[in-house]
Write a protein that binds this DNA or RNA. Structure first.
Length: 274
DNA sequence: CACGAGACCTGTTCGC
DNA sequence: TGCGAACAGGTCTCGT
């Protein structure tokens, strides 16, 4: 599921809480349970459980698609991959069917790591930079100027779609927002990064930011049975709209396979340069 | 260096 | 209705 806007929305919800549940921020962990060992990447599950006990959640933020929880001298990282979600529920409630990790809190609530496909991972680290250090810049980093972005695009020779999905190049984009950003910028997903002009690079960066900002404003996208929260799925221009008219020009949206990922674009607005 | 295929997983939807 | 295939928000590893 979650790309940058979804993780940002989840982080915001866990920070402040809502009408149904108190914030995760400031809560103390009474105990942790792991129901699927491989959901914990590091350390081994028994140690993970031991070290979490008694820790207080001091800060909650996002880096790329990672949720970052600062504890007392330790950092809990969560990556939701395809089907993961995090929510708070009363501790008295039975544990959900696809709950992989549960943290019982002193607020009487439980943080549930729900993940039907079991691709998601948690890390408990003294130095989170060991994992986060691999990531490229944040899309909204003011230091990422259009000139710098153009230089980055020129420095490699890759198809735009696969490059934008590469978290070492830019952190946070996934399949939805990449397709939407390329459509917004009028660039074909197979365009080689080194062929992009400075003005096209500027436009692409602006589109990436615009599409992510819209996603955040709508609290992310909810598709299928995974993640319920936002409504950005009602505003997709190309993603999962194969055969439907392009909102810009009316041509039917086309779907191709690129690196095993469904890729959606408008054949009229996004032309591949020869 | 860059790409595709396969692996990791389960659930839903589609086509016959 | 039933059943298999296709598909799904991600990332890693391996072979070419």
């Amino acid at each position: 599921m979650p790309e940058l806007p979804e993780v940002e929305s989840i982080a915001a919800r866990l920070r402040s809480g809502n009408a149904q549940s108190p914030p995760l921020l400031g809560a103390r962990i009474l105990s942790a349970r792991v129901f699927w060992q491989r959901s914990v990447a590091e350390p081994p599950a028994e140690i993970f459980v031991q070290r979490l006990q008694g820790q207080t959640i001091c800060e909650i933020r996002r880096r790329g698609k990672f949720l970052v929880c600062e504890l007392e001298g330790l950092t809990l990282l969560v990556h939701l991959r395809m089907s993961g979600d995090l929510w708070m529920e009363p501790s008295s409630q039975p544990v959900a069917a696809h709950c992989r990790v549960a943290l019982s809190l002193d607020s009487g609530y439980r943080l549930t790591f729900h993940d039907p496909r079991k691709f998601g991972r948690m890390w408990l680290l003294e130095d989170p930079e060991r994992v986060l250090g691999e990531l490229g810049p944040e899309p909204f980093d003011p230091g990422l100027t259009s000139e710098a972005f153009f230089e980055k695009l020129s420095s490699v020779r890759r198809r735009l779609k696969s490059l934008l999905l590469d978290q070492r190049f830019l952190a946070g984009l996934g399949n939805i927002y990449t397709d939407e950003a390329l459509h917004c910028a009028g660039l074909h997903p197979l365009t080689l990064s080194a062929q992009v002009s400075p003005s096209q690079a500027e436009r692409l960066l602006a589109c990436i930011r615009a599409v992510l900002a819209e996603g955040i404003r709508r609290s992310g996208a909810s598709i299928d049975w995974v993640y319920r929260g936002g409504d950005f799925q009602n505003y997709f221009r190309v993603y999962r709209r194969t055969g439907l008219p392009c909102p810009t020009c009316g041509a039917p949206i086309r779907r191709i396979l690129l690196g095993q990922r469904g890729t959606h674009f408008c054949p009229q607005c996004q032309v591949l340069p020869s």
